Simulated scan of single mutants.
Amino acid sequence: MPGVPGRASRAGRRRRQRGSAVVDFVLVLVVLVPVFLGVLQVALVLFVRNTVTAAAAEGARYAATVGRDPADGVARTRSQIGGVLAGRYAHEISAHRVTIGGAPAVEVTVHVVVPALGLGGPGVSLVLSGHAIEEQP
């Protein structure tokens, strides 16, 4: 309607805003995707760390029982990790006898590299261990 003020300016404004929703969506995604991947990476690292630490502690307790040696603790740790995570996390496991506060003990150490999410990059390297005092017969 030619005599109604503001009507022509609204139509022109709609034409200028066409496609702006796509641009807004892309701008929001540029921020949200890296944040989401970062949260996912932290969750993966914490999950692997907690799982491997529990497996190392279980392996150390198993190796510290009467009639067992550190090699049994390595096998138990490898079995625990392989049951929850991929087998590649269970390849660098060592166990040896140590002394904790003057008492004989077993220490199981696991070296793990958690892969990076997203476009690559270095993984997160963790060295985790579990300890247990040896049982005496």
Rank of each mutant, 00 (worst) to 15 (best):
L119S: 14
H91I: 14
L44Y: 05
G19Y: 05
H131F: 13
V113T: 15
S20H: 04
V127W: 09
G3D: 13
A54N: 10
A132D: 07
G38Y: 10
P122D: 15
N50K: 04
R49L: 06
E58Q: 11
V110A: 11
A63Q: 06
F36R: 00
A57I: 07
S125E: 15
V124F: 14
I81C: 04
V106A: 03
A56R: 00
R14D: 09
I100E: 15
F25R: 00
Q41F: 07
N50W: 02
L117T: 10
G118C: 12
L128D: 09
L126E: 12
G101R: 06
L27K: 02
A43E: 03
R10H: 06
S94I: 10
D69R: 10
L85Q: 02
A54S: 13
A116F: 04
V106K: 01
P5C: 01
G123E: 11
L117R: 08
R15G: 06
T99A: 15
V98W: 04
V31T: 11
Q136R: 14
V112A: 09
A64F: 04
V33G: 08
R97D: 15
D72N: 13
G38C: 06
V124A: 13
V112W: 04
A57F: 07
G19S: 02
T77F: 01
R16V: 01
S9R: 12
P122C: 08
F25V: 11
V26D: 07
A132Y: 03
D24F: 06
G12C: 01
A57M: 07
V39Q: 03
V45I: 14
T65Y: 04
P115C: 07
V106Y: 02
A116T: 08
S129V: 04
R13H: 08
G6M: 03
A86K: 07
V98F: 07
V28G: 14
L40W: 11
E92C: 01
V30G: 12
F36G: 12
S9V: 08
G102W: 07
G67C: 05
N50I: 03
V31L: 14
V39P: 00
V48M: 01
V26S: 09
E134M: 15
V28P: 00
T109E: 14
H111I: 12
G3E: 13
R15V: 06
N50H: 09
R76H: 09
R14V: 02
S94M: 05
I133W: 10
L128P: 05
R16Q: 06
G130L: 03
D24E: 15
R14Q: 09
A86M: 06
V30N: 01
R49D: 10
E134F: 02
G73V: 00
A43M: 09
V30A: 14
V74I: 15
I93S: 05
Y62T: 08
R16W: 00
A71E: 13
V35L: 15
P104S: 14
L117I: 14
V26R: 05
Q41W: 06
L126C: 08
L119F: 15
A71T: 13
Q136L: 12
E135I: 04
L27M: 13
G38A: 11
V33W: 09
A103H: 10
A90Y: 04
R10P: 00
T77P: 02
G3H: 12
L37D: 04
T99I: 11
M1H: 11
A105T: 06
